[in-house]
Design a protein around this nucleic acid. Structure first.
Length: 575
DNA sequence: GCCGTTTTCGGCCCGACTGTTTTCAGTCG
């Protein structure tokens, strides 16, 4: 069983949680958490790095001690230290930390005084009203814990596209309030993360109480969790938590930086401020021991106070962006407008809902210069996949439509299945007649890493292979990534002149941000496509752009920023 | 446990809100 980066960060987080409950030094606990975070942000593979005897302490947040522990996890699959802690602290106690309102101190108290070792135990204690008897807990807190326990069944983060569906009407509602100035959604929403845990909304307004009243009266709210002068939290009927902050115009930039995060990015920025005898909080930038803010009206002012240009929100993850900004080395991130076409979509020829012509006309409306029609091949029977004859007919049809249509070129393509043994699902002679081929896996997603990687490598060996579609196969929230050696696949793609897709379907977003970065570091170019199954879904391309931006990609890193002749030449010449 | 254009010890981001208190600890973001 190969050890993945996430296995290692999971173990380190568990160590942190249990040490925290045990009452270990806060900073020591934080070190484990930061190391875990740093590993999650990594674009490389730790197992490989250990194998190649690379110096792990060069990674941020990882020193001698944790480097050794990583090596131990890679070679044995587990960590002795963790097993030892589990002798002292029941491992399921860490689950209690996930309950909102419970931190290490309270969890320890629950364990010591009521012998609570798991969420089950806690549920029982709440039902029997034992928790309220503890010092420092009380009736209210017991009730809140009870509510949290009921609520937290299931995934709490939602897809970005869903968050937008809730956010837009709420923003419109807030803007109905007359005295309101700016309204901006900050947090991971503004950083365009693939999933969003809650919404952090920032408004400027002089009438703080009144605007809070307006907010908490929104019809879609189920429960007001807290309400103060500057901050209120509510839970919507959907379960989504929304925090509203009211700030003054003078603090707008500082608050925007602060609430956009990420937390780790903010810490970096504040550390830089301390180096300059400054203090940054959500109200502004302050000189040591002075009360008057010297900056903070705009984000630009805040970043300038620590000698940096404004860093785009998508990069604010503490993945090296502060250093890059300092060296004037920030990437010039790709934009939606840079894309000239869309190279993955379906029509009524397989499982799409719109005709070729409808897709082409809708794409033209969006400003595309070209699209590729890529219906499924026969293996995907559930999606009405095409055999060679049907594909031949589609080719003729596309040629016919191309001769009728102005202003957009339809490329002849296919999403051809990669079969179990790595062969492509249709004969070469028909595939050859196409402009391009997206090659994807839809079956046997559960193969071992070795077999799955070999399968893809074999397929890439076919000179007709152009683009690896939705490379990891994940579908949020249910289906995780296939077991893959992504480094090897990227190397193979480079060698064989293949490209990887950034599939913009909101539940896929595959490649994700980290893999985009990994591709860029290796000089491998990607394609941002929608995999649209209807005309409306052609607009999903922006979600792919978000991932690409979070992965530091620039216009040159994405091949469908090229005009059609360049693109076709690239697809053929790289073979 | 990590980290260092003041370095190998002594720091480690900062403020709001809640529930419990009677001046604050714990938690959260």
């Amino acid at each position: 069983m190969p050890v993945h980066n996430s296995d290692i960060s999971d173990i380190l987080r568990e160590v942190a949680d249990l040490l925290d409950i045990e009452g270990a030094d806060d900073f020591r606990v934080r070190s484990y958490r930061q190391a875990a975070q740093s590993i999650d942000n990594l674009s490389g593979n730790l197992r490989e790095m250990v194998k190649q005897d690379k110096d792990l302490t060069e990674l941020s947040g990882i020193g001698e001690s944790i480097a050794e522990k990583i090596k131990e996890i890679v070679s044995t699959g587990s960590l002795k230290q963790l097993e030892e802690i589990k002798q002292r602290v029941p491992e399921h106690l860490a689950d209690l930390l996930k309950v909102e309102g419970l931190g290490p101190e309270r969890v320890k108290e629950l364990h010591d005084e009521l012998d609570i070792n798991s969420l089950e135990d806690l549920k029982e204690a709440v039902e029997n009203q034992k928790v309220r008897e503890l010092g420092g807990f009380g009736v209210k807190m017991e009730e809140n814990i009870g509510k949290e326990l009921k609520r937290t069944d299931g995934e709490s983060r939602i897809l970005l596209i869903r968050a937008e569906e809730y956010a837009h009407p709420l923003v419109a509602y807030l803007e109905e309030f007359d005295e309101i100035g700016r309204v901006e959604i900050a947090g991971s929403y503004r950083r365009r993360k693939e999933t969003v845990g809650d919404l952090d909304i920032l408004v400027t307004c002089d009438k703080k109480e009144a605007v809070m009243e307006h907010f908490t009266s929104y019809e879609d709210i189920q429960e007001v969790l807290s309400k103060g002068d500057t901050r209120s939290s509510v839970r919507m009927r959907s379960g989504l938590q929304v925090d509203l902050r009211v700030i003054s115009d003078e603090s707008y930039g500082a608050a925007l930086v602060y609430f956009t995060g990420s937390k780790q990015h903010n810490i970096r920025i504040r550390e830089r401020a301390l180096d300059r005898d400054l203090k940054i909080n959500e109200y502004g930038v302050f000189k040591e021991n002075k009360e008057e803010s010297i900056a903070g009206k705009t984000e630009k002012e805040v970043y300038e106070s620590v000698d940096l240009p404004v860093i785009p929100p998508e990069l604010r993850e503490d993945r090296g962006e502060v250093k890059a900004a300092e060296q004037e080395n920030l990437p010039k991130l790709i934009t939606l407008e840079d894309l000239k076409g869309d190279l993955h979509m379906h029509t009524t020829y397989s499982d799409g809902g719109s005709s070729i012509k409808e897709m082409a006309e809708a794409a033209k409306e969006l400003g595309h210069e070209y699209i590729a029609i890529t219906d499924h091949s026969k293996r995907v029977t559930v999606a009405n996949g095409m055999d060679a004859d049907e594909l031949a007919k589609q080719i003729e049809k596309i040629e016919e439509i191309n001769s009728e249509l102005d202003g957009i070129r339809i490329l002849k393509g296919i999403e051809v299945d990669i079969l179990d043994d790595g062969a492509l699902d249709l004969p070469d002679d028909i595939l050859k007649r196409l402009d391009l081929r997206v090659c994807s896996i839809h079956y046997k997603l559960g193969l071992s890493e070795k077999k799955q990687t070999k399968r893809i490598l074999k397929a890439m060996g076919n000179p007709l292979f152009n683009i690896l579609g939705h490379p990891t196969g994940r579908q949020m929230p249910d289906r995780g990534e296939m077991n893959l050696d992504m480094e090897t696949i990227m190397e193979a793609a480079l060698e064989n002149g293949c490209f990887l897709e950034v599939n913009a379907t909101p539940r896929r977003m595959d490649l994700n941000d980290r893999y985009c970065r990994m591709a860029k570091e290796r000089g491998l170019k990607v394609v941002i496509s929608t995999d649209a199954h209807s005309t409306g879904e052609l607009e999903h391309q922006k979600y792919g752009v978000f991932q690409a931006r979070r992965g530091w990609l620039e216009k040159e890193d994405v091949i469908n920023t090229r005009d059609v002749n360049d693109l076709l030449e690239l697809l053929n010449s790289s073979k």
